[in-house]
């Protein structure tokens, strides 16, 4: 058998992280900023037991509801973005076909633990979202999501003094375990810091229709 080469459509950016860390809130903040930069955008959500995240985005009026697809993960939030991302790939290809000018698809994983990572056959770039209320020892735990993600987002920084978190130490440890790769601090409730996420995406991800090797290569 041979591996085929084909047009792979819009760039895809994964947004992973534990339940309640603020992934959907981040996506809600990213949508207007990315659209404000003229980027043709769509979103796929992988809710674990409901379509709540997809419905929340559809109702938000931030984006055409038809540009939001929900993919059920069958109680396997890891599998659907890593071992078997075919349902997400199929959903992304549906969006590519439906919206010919599409440049970027955000793929929000179902809430999970620190071990979740994205298949590089699914996404071009992925970020992992944690929050200070989860504890300032999370970076020290060195989960694959913390270590391997292209971008680590530490959210809810405004809560640090209220939950006894030493934010400076948390950030320093995050940078240390990630070998200096990017870490961005956000408060998605107010939008503070989200522009840093946009810049990280813009700096790292070529947007627009792309052509490349579609599978088996470790990258799209």
């Amino acid at each position: 058998m041979t591996v085929s080469t084909e047009v792979v459509g819009a760039a895809r950016v994964g947004v992973g992280g534990p339940v309640g860390s603020g992934k959907t809130a981040l996506v809600e903040r990213l949508i207007p900023l990315l659209r404000g930069e003229g980027i043709d955008l769509a979103v796929i959500t992988n809710d674990l037991v409901t379509k709540e995240d997809a419905e929340r985005l559809r109702r938000s009026r931030l984006i055409d509801p038809e540009r939001v697809l929900a993919v059920e993960a069958g109680a396997c939030p890891h599998t659907v973005i890593r071992e078997d991302p075919t349902l997400n790939i199929e959903a992304a290809e549906r969006l590519d076909a439906q919206f010919p000018g599409l440049e970027l698809i955000l793929i929000e994983s179902g809430g999970d633990n620190l071990a979740s990572t994205f298949s590089l056959d699914l996404v071009d770039y992925w970020m992992f979202v944690i929050d200070v209320a989860g504890g300032d020892d999370i970076p020290r735990k060195r989960g694959p999501g913390i270590i391997q993600s292209d971008l680590l987002v530490i959210n809810k920084v405004d809560l640090a003094p209220h939950v006894g978190v030493d934010l400076d130490r948390m950030v320093a440890e995050a940078r240390e375990v990630r070998g200096g790769r990017p870490v961005v601090l956000t408060n998605c409730r107010t939008g503070d810091g989200v522009d840093g996420v946009v810049r990280a995406i813009r700096d790292a991800v070529p947007l627009g229709r792309q052509t490349g090797k579609s599978a088996g290569s470790g990258s799209r």
Binding site: M1, T86, L87, A215
Partner: peptide, 20 residues
């Protein structure tokens, strides 16, 4: 339909005759 699309997608990428 979705399961069929996923199956055709992976086999097309693997180069299985007839899938693409």
């Amino acid at each position: 339909r979705r399961a069929g699309a996923a199956l055709l997608g992976i086999h097309a990428r693997l180069g299985t005759p007839g899938a693409a």
